[in-house]
């Protein structure tokens, strides 16, 4: 039997902005199981952050029901706040500038009701997981990546938190810091259990970290399941990418003549979509003819392809 921690049924959120009624969420149904990393994926303005804020009791939903650990987000907000860790979007400045990262974490931990000794020990634990070495610097002196890391650590301060919501935790970070933070999140889940809801645009991040994904667009969930499930909805295709040393019009014209080439970009970086792997040798032969076979790369569809296919198609309706 599934042990769910988040349930939403037909959740809707409408608000008025500058005289216009905005439907930020529409009929959202989802369940998050205990112990998993669940991804909210979707373009800007799709409703991911709005749903997150409803679940952490920062926003009131307009319709439907939402429960975290069986507590109603409207009636039991107080209980939910005790069992939820939260890192919001654009909050890398939300520490106190004249305090060190460690002092910030201690303060926020104690404001949450964690005794000082426990908060100090917890920070040490988290520091070990992430191998962070900047905690004794003033927040004002930290890089954006270090600030963001501190803010993500803050969401994990309470050992009693049953679920942690992370809204774009690696946004704007350099690849090394982002990787460090992802490793931290993964290690945390492996070592301490717990549930994470991860809001992200980053397909690689979601695909590599999440057990389940809900794909949002225009305030609705348009698909949900495991990353593999979501990719299955795509018609089978292969993407062949060729980065040419220089544009070659005759090569493109020859490729365009092939009936099974579904899509082709006309630039120095060619992207050729074919539906059947058996057609790959034909393509290779053409590439050899033009002596560009060494620049070829063939791959199966990724989550990003699925995302563009599903959301892109929907946005062009």
């Amino acid at each position: 039997m599934r042990d769910t921690i988040v349930t939403t049924t037909t959740v809707g959120k409408t608000y008025v902005s500058r005289g216009t009624q905005i439907h930020a969420l529409n009929n959202v149904n989802l369940t998050v199981d205990k112990g998993e990393i669940f991804g909210f994926l979707g373009p800007n303005g799709a409703g991911k952050t709005t749903l997150t804020k409803i679940l952490v009791t920062l926003l009131k939903k307009s319709t439907g029901g939402a429960f975290v650990s069986q507590y109603d987000v409207d009636k039991d907000a107080h209980h939910i706040r005790k069992i939820v860790g939260y890192q919001g979007q654009d909050t890398e400045r939300s520490g106190y500038l004249r305090f060190t990262a460690r002092e910030n974490l201690e303060l926020f931990g104690r404001l949450r009701g964690i005794p000082k000794k426990e908060a100090t020990e917890r920070i040490e634990e988290l520091q070990t997981i992430g191998n962070f070495d900047f905690l004794d610097k003033y927040f004002v002196a930290l890089s954006i990546g270090q600030r963001q890391t501190t803010i993500v650590m803050r969401a994990f301060l309470d050992e009693k938190a049953e679920i942690v919501f992370l809204d774009e935790p690696t946004r704007g970070l350099d690849p090394i810091t982002a990787l460090q933070l992802r490793t931290f999140i993964q290690t945390y889940v492996q070592e301490e259990g717990g549930t994470i809801v991860l809001v992200s645009h980053d397909m690689y991040e979601v695909e590599s970290l999440c057990d389940h994904i809900a794909l949002f667009n225009k305030g609705r969930i348009i698909n949900q399941g495991t990353p593999t499930d979501i990719k299955k909805v795509l018609p089978s295709f292969y993407k062949i990418t060729v980065t040419l040393p220089s544009p070659d019009k005759s090569l493109i014209e020859e490729l365009e003549l092939l009936p099974y080439v579904r899509d082709l970009t006309d630039s120095r970086r060619l992207e050729i979509i074919i539906e059947n792997v058996h057609h790959v040798p034909d393509i290779l032969q053409i590439m050899k003819k033009y002596s560009v076979e060494e620049y070829i790369e063939i791959r199966k569809p990724t989550l990003e392809d699925a995302f563009i296919q599903i959301v892109g198609g929907d946005n062009h309706d």
Binding site: T57, K82, V84, T91, R93, G95, L111, R112
Partner: peptide
């Protein structure tokens, strides 16, 4: 402006 209040309001404070 910095988002600290939003974080505090998500906490049992």
């Amino acid at each position: 402006v910095y988002g600290t209040v939003e974080y505090i309001f998500s906490q049992p404070v």
